[in-house]
């Protein structure tokens, strides 16, 4: 990180495994840096008041609301957005779960939901329905009524657990 003039900061982040460097104003929020500067529009931007969670990305593996984080704060960090969920073997089990269980309708909440769901399963590989609802309580969905989102996360948990067993 270096200071060019009063308000500009050079930010280097490893986004979805790729190192990117760009200038940002000190006040630039991470959500806008990802969407507008780096062109990664998979991360959505909703309430702008830290409530809805559509903007959630993982910073060094930990989900946070990127509308409430400065881009400059993540200089030197690893950021995972929804674009980074898919691996060399195809879709992540979380993504498969959302497809198989119809865990989305309009899809607006889905990127943030999936990033947090991935973290949730890393913390707790076999969560109960209550634990899933509690873990996702910082994200709002206006469409699904949450039922199918819970199913999607359970699908991913089962798939990940079976994988471990058969591996």
């Amino acid at each position: 990180m270096s200071h060019d003039h009063h308000n500009s900061v050079s930010v280097t982040v490893t986004v979805n495994g790729e190192q990117r460097t760009a200038e940002a104003e000190g006040r630039t929020l991470l959500v806008h840096f990802l969407r507008d500067t780096l062109g990664l529009t998979g991360t959505h931007w909703g309430c702008d008041t830290s409530n809805c969670g559509v903007c959630v990305v993982a910073v060094d593996g930990v989900p946070m609301k990127s509308c409430t984080v400065l881009a400059a704060m993540v200089d030197g960090c690893e950021v995972t957005t929804v674009e980074g969920l898919e691996g060399p073997d195809g879709l992540h089990p979380i993504q498969e779960g959302f497809i198989e269980c119809h865990g989305l309708q309009c899809g607006y909440c889905t990127p943030g939901m999936m990033i947090t769901a991935k973290w949730l399963l890393e913390q707790n590989p076999d969560p109960s329905e209550h634990e899933i609802r509690d873990g996702l309580s910082g994200q709002l969905c206006r469409c699904t009524g949450y039922h199918n989102i819970v199913e999607a996360v359970r699908f991913a948990a089962d798939k990940l657990n079976n994988k471990e067993v058969s591996a």
């Binding site: 200071h3 009063h6 308000n7 000190g26 006040r27 929020l29 400059a72």
Partner: peptide, 12 residues
């Protein structure tokens, strides 16, 4: 869109 007013960013 809500963004903060400009400020100088420093890192301790």
């Amino acid at each position: 869109m809500q963004v903060p007013a400009p400020f100088g960013y420093e890192r301790a």
